[in-house]
């Protein structure tokens, strides 16, 4: 069996989600002294062991919950035999993925800032003059191709954030159509209030897309911080993504 440190490094480099469990203090629990550890990944203990099966089940369940909320926590767990252990759940979340559709002026600072914050960043555009490594040296992936088709084929999970900032609504809208029923944590779309309203009306009337799905979209995109330059707009977008990820309360331009 790989040693714990090796495994922790592997978890990080693979971008996997895992929870390291450490006993901080225990009272009357066999084999669980202060400092005892186990690692939970993919819903099971992959390293270390817990002798009490009921406690093991509890730990695995708690680990899944902590991972879902991306928050490390100290919990006091009791065993059937009357023992008690203070156990620290250290969450190592899989890095959030940011998909930037449209490689224009806003995308450049947005990708830089998102990399500073450790997002896995993918840039998509149908123009190789824009979607290229010289323009986005920090991006994890740069994809050239039809934007809606590319988005359609992408793996989108509850830790995926999608920003639609293409050069026009003609391109944003087909992408949005592909995204509405996918499990992304965040979908934001650029555009003036007027154009967005028209787009949403069309979606509702002509395509019978439900209000519920449409209301997921953050459009106009970004926080209400009176942004002007592309860099400021990028900051407003990333601020909104952080708000959604962490459960903040700042006001969005979409009034959310």
């Amino acid at each position: 069996m790989d040693a714990l440190v090796e495994e922790l490094i592997k978890v990080k480099s693979e971008g996997a989600g895992a929870v390291l469990i450490t006993v901080v203090e225990s009272d009357g629990v066999d084999g669980l002294d202060s400092g005892a550890k186990c690692l939970v990944r993919d819903g099971r203990i992959v390293l270390g062991s817990v002798s009490d099966p009921a406690l093991e089940q509890r730990i695995v369940r708690e680990a899944a919950e902590r991972l879902a909320e991306e928050r490390s926590r100290l919990l006091s767990l009791e065993t059937d035999s009357g023992g008690q252990a203070d156990v620290f759940f250290e969450v190592m979340p899989s890095p959030p993925k940011l998909i930037v559709v449209g490689a224009g002026h806003i995308a450049v600072p947005l990708v830089k800032m998102a990399k500073l914050m450790d997002y896995h960043v993918v840039v998509v555009d149908d123009r190789i003059l824009f979607a290229n490594r010289e323009r986005f040296p920090e991006a994890d992936e740069v994809v050239v191709g039809d934007m809606a088709e590319t988005v359609k084929d992408m793996d989108i999970t509850p830790t995926t954030y999608v920003v639609l900032i293409t050069r026009g609504h003609k391109y944003d809208e087909p992408c949005l159509r592909e995204l509405l029923d996918r499990p992304a944590k965040y979908i934001g779309m650029i555009g003036s209030k007027r154009r967005i309203k028209a787009c949403f009306e069309r979606f509702k009337e002509e395509e019978q897309i439900s209000e519920e799905l449409i209301s997921r979209v953050y459009a106009p995109i970004g926080l209400d911080i009176a942004t002007e330059t592309p860099e400021e707009i990028a900051l407003g977008i990333l601020g909104e993504i952080i708000k959604v990820r962490r459960g903040g309360k700042a006001r969005s331009l979409s009034r959310k």
């Binding site: 714990l4 440190v5 450490t22």
Partner: peptide, 18 residues
Amino acid sequence: NVFIDPWWKDEEGDEKSA
């Protein structure tokens, strides 16, 4: 509250923490 935990590698090459 800060938990301080020692980590070391024992002679067989296995990593240990207390």
